[in-house]
Amino acid sequence: MRAGQSTRRVSTDLVGIAVILAAAGIGFLLFPDNLALLTRIIALALLVLSLDLVTGYCGIATLGHAALYGAGSYAAGVAAAHFAISDPLLMTLAGITAGAAAGLVCGLVILRATGLPQLVLSIATVYLFHELANKLSSWTGGSDGLSGISPSPLLGLFAFDLWGRTAFGFGVALLLVVFVLLRILARSPFGMLCRGIKEDPLRIRSMGASPYRALAKMYVISGAVAGAGGALNAISTQVVGLDSLSFTLSAEALVMLVLGGTGSLYGALTGTVLFMLFADFVSAASPFHWLTMVGALLVAIVLFAPKGLYGSISDYLARRRGTA
């Protein structure tokens, strides 16, 4: 039984990897001229996965998560533009490090409160980060954005081409690595501790664990993931703007997560893809009403599939399997 359980786990991981690869392949075939969109979806998927770690897995309400993503984006951009660190892997490492550091700072602040005050603190942090980036314009380019980022070829072999093929391939690889690491994290002792904290922090305390420490640690991990997404964004678009550090992006990330379903990696991925493709499609078809349509989609999903698209479907399948 136990061996069966662990093989089943590994095989669901393999299914996940296969699904991501298949989705990437289909995207590549459907949008050969718009790989930039696909790469942007991957970068945002990393942000939404990162948000899922604190919101879905730990129950922390935040509308400021783009602070971590933006920190990663600017770190990768600044490394390339000001320090001539143009190796894409090193830029990604810079993004991950800065994201983790931003996660620590934001986490220590946001975790001081719970509930509504926590939400307000999270909004405050993203505004502060935004303002900081705006003020440090000699480093960040302020409202003009940070340019002059030209990553050198990946592994010295694959140049970042005009069509965005290398960036896309790099994004897919990055997403796969993160996905596998997060699957391992979710079932580790630490993942189990976080599930307990989400449900009943007081009970966890009586077992000897400190929720604050654990959640701060999760924020650092979450920051690393968001930072990787931010770095991917900097590498692929070769500019970094203040919008990567905005309240709007934070709110959109939360919308994507809720669309897909919180508390599962697949939910986060589904929500991001759904939101981005829908927004792209609708904004091309009807440039003036696309926000209305996105709003309507959100209302429909929240009303009819309150656990998000992925969450509701997997619930439905589990129920059917239960009655069958």
Partner: peptide
């Protein structure tokens, strides 16, 4: 695991 100080492990089961 908490008693033994192992709940902060990020991998394994």
């Amino acid at each position: 695991l908490e008693r033994d100080g192992k709940t902060h492990r990020l991998a394994g089961s």
